[in-house]
Amino acid sequence: MSDVVDIRPGAILKNNLWSNNPIFMQILGICSALAVTNLLTNTAIMTLGVTLVTGFSSLTVSLLKKLIPRKVRMIVQTLIIAFYVIIVDLVLKAFLPEISKNLGPYVGLIITNCIIMGRAEAFAQSNGPIVSFWDGITSGLGYMGVLLVMAVFRELLGFGTLFGYQIMPAAFVPWTIMVMPPSAFFLLGLIIWAGKTMMGGEKA
């Protein structure tokens, strides 16, 4: 991480999507990267939820930062994050019951996603509300990008489908390992390797 944080919107975008990507540079939010990446539809909705929660939590933390006593800072941040996660959960239950059923307990577990807390603590605590919201949204998008790539591989090889549509020929034998969590470890390792290699090339 660079010492001086550049808070121009373009710089934040590039930083969060690529050069300081939450997944393959900061290695945050790995639990859900392993758990919800075997079906693209679920991954898309889940990461959209994380993106919105990160954005709005950062916005709220930034708005309240002058009022929050330092010693209860983390507790209040957790409260704010939990608030938005429950809202997302309720909206999914009411308007997308099918997806809510598929995601099951994982929506509630967005609360434990370290990216959200990380952005609240590292950025929103010391920056203005609008730029914090943008930082949260772009961090969520950086997370979404990597998870969607993983989900494409896992769903295609594990089920032979993409977004539930059959892609692979009927003779294709699904790789059961791709459906199970271990495959996410392998894929994540490969993605981190690829990302770091490409970045090393850029710097040189």
Binding site: L67, I68, P69, R70, K71, V72, L79, F83, I87
Partner: peptide
């Protein structure tokens, strides 16, 4: 802002507001 009374009142109000919205 770092005093005990302020902290307790603040946490109470924040919790109340968010739980009410929920």
């Amino acid at each position: 802002r770092e005093g005990t009374i302020y902290t307790i009142v603040f946490v109470f109000i924040v919790s109340f507001a968010f739980v009410l919205l929920l």
